[in-house]
Simulated scan of single mutants.
Amino acid sequence: MSDHEENPVTNGLVALATVAIVVGILGGLGAVVATKVVGLGDASEAAADSTGQGGASLIMPDPVPTEAESGPLVTLAPSQNETFTTSPDASDDASDEPSQNEKPAKNKKEITLSQGAFEVAPGEKLYLSGIYPGGEGSVLDVEYRIDGGAWTGFPVDVSVSNETFSTYVETYKTGSIEWRVVDKATKKVSNSVKVRHG
C-alpha cells in the first residue's frame, strides 16, 4: 500500500490548498485585466501625472489657533412661552440703540429648563437639563405638578456647574406632569416643561 492511500485526509487538504491557490492567482489576474479594460487604472495615473505627484495625496491645511468658548456649551430649544417677532419695517443697517417706542431688553439671568422627552412610561427616567447664567454653584430644587395642581417638591436636587445643570427624575405617577427647578436662595424659578407620563 502506498503513502498516498494511507493518508486520504492529508491528500484532500493538499488538493484543496492547491485549488485555492490556483483560483486566487486566476482571480487576481482577472481583476488586473478587468481594471485595464475598463480604464480604472488610467484615470488615477493621469491624475498623478497632471499634478506632478507620484500618486494620490492628502493636503492638510495649516493649523490655526482657536479661541476657547466663554459661555455654556449647551444649546436649548426656546420654551413655549417665548415668542420671537420681527418688525416688517426693520432694516439690516438699523442702529443698535433702541428707538423711543422700543423698551430696552432686560438683561435677566433666568433659569432655562428643557426636557429629554415629551412622553415617558411610568417609572421611566426623564432627563431634565438647563442653563442658569450666573448661577455657578447653586443648588436647584426640582418641583412638579400633576394636571395643573399645586407645585410639589420632588426628592431630587441638582447642582449648577459651568452655568449648566442636568439630572433625571422617575415617577410612577401618571398624567400630564409639569416640571420646573427653583433656586430658593435667590427665589428664581425656571420655565416649566410638560411631559405626558403613562
Rank of each mutant, 00 (worst) to 15 (best):
Ser79Cys: 05
Pro88Asp: 08
Pro98Ser: 11
Gly148Met: 06
Thr86Asp: 11
Ile21Leu: 09
Val156Met: 15
Asp157Leu: 07
Val19Trp: 12
Gly54Thr: 13
Ser91Ile: 09
Lys187Trp: 03
Gly41Lys: 04
Ser57Thr: 15
Asn7Gly: 05
Ala47Ser: 11
Val189Glu: 14
Lys109Val: 09
Ala17Lys: 14
Asn107Ser: 10
Gly149Tyr: 00
Lys103Asn: 12
His197Arg: 10
Ser99Arg: 08
Gly116Ser: 01
Val32Trp: 04
Gly52Val: 02
Val9Gly: 07
Ala105Glu: 07
Gly71Ser: 11
Ser2Val: 09
Pro122Ala: 15
Val182Phe: 10
Gly30Lys: 05
Glu143Met: 06
His4Glu: 14
Phe154Arg: 13
Val37Cys: 06
Gly130Lys: 02
His4Asn: 13
Leu26Gln: 02
Asp147Thr: 03
Gly137Leu: 07
Ala31Gln: 09
Val22Gln: 04
Gln100Cys: 08
Leu113Asp: 02
Gly71Glu: 03
Thr174His: 03
Gly39Trp: 06
Asn107Ala: 15
Asn107Lys: 06
Asn81Met: 03
Ala15Gln: 09
Asn191Phe: 13
Lys173Asn: 14
Glu163Gly: 00
Gly175His: 01
Val22Cys: 07
Val9Gln: 11
Asp157Met: 00
Thr66Arg: 12
Gly39Gln: 01
Thr171Met: 01
Val22Trp: 14
Gly153Glu: 14
Asp141Gln: 09
Gly137Glu: 05
Ala34Lys: 10
Leu76His: 03
Gly54Asn: 14
Lys109Leu: 12
Gly137Ala: 14
Asp42Gln: 04
